[in-house]
Amino acid sequence: MELLIKKIKRKKPIDWLRFLAVWTSAFLTVFILVYILVFVLIRGIPHIKPSLFSFTYTIENQSLFPAIVTTVIMIVVTLVLAVPLGVFTAIYLVEYAKRGSKFVQAIRTTSETLAGIPSIVFGLFGYIFFADWLGWGKSILAGCFTLAIMVLPLIIRTTEESLKSIPDSYREGSFSLGAGRLRTVWRVVLPPALPGVFAGIILAMGRIVGETAALVFTIGSVIKIPDNLFSQGRTLALHVLQLSSQGHYRNEAYATAVILLVLVVGINMLSTSIERKFKESTK
């Protein structure tokens, strides 16, 4: 029907203006995105060599392998911290709490607040609290905890939304069969909501991979495979930053940036496909 409307109705000049405005914006937006991507790819791809993936970083060979290892460790530890915390909080908010109670309000406000804080403020806090006050020093652990707090609202929100999208009939059916609330949540509500939860987790992964400001003061800047969680380290994004700031490694910086982009694109595509599966399964 919309197609008919678009074709049949006569348009006034101002409608052409609106049409123009919308299509220009669309074109501009896509153009900018493509430009940025091609910009990085063109400068980086020629400089990608297998040696970039060797195990150690030397001044002759700016390997990014230690950075990849550190990034993976960071993703794992941060998610281990944030996901249970976030999912359980969301479960509490949706399944257990009385709607509109003060506690729920407090958590909602808290979550919104956290979501709005700039990453540099997280970095500042992480430095003061984890690195300094708790005495962990600049370390992967400090970085992970800082990032965990940062992605917490994201996980809470996406889990909440997917739990809410499970129709109440599931819950009522389970209750009427005699199951307790815990069993209901665990066996009946959570499983179909999982794809949505995963989508949120993957979004969080994307944020973790791309983050720099929050980590600059908390994770240190040493480029090697970390020995333990208290070592300093460098994630891929930080490595790009550091390489670009040394005089002689600009090309390697672009090459590393390409790898980073590939990682981000991969994570994004994963998230999209999971979201699609979720939409289908709830139909």
């Binding site: 995105l33 994307g206 791309g210 790009v240 940036a257 981000v264 994004n268 999209t272």
Partner: peptide, 17 residues
């Protein structure tokens, strides 16, 4: 998906650009 990708591009890359 392209717009979602744009959201995920790390800020260092925007900085280079």
């Amino acid at each position: 998906p392209a717009i979602n990708l744009m959201a995920g591009v790390p800020s260092v890359i925007y900085g280079f650009f």
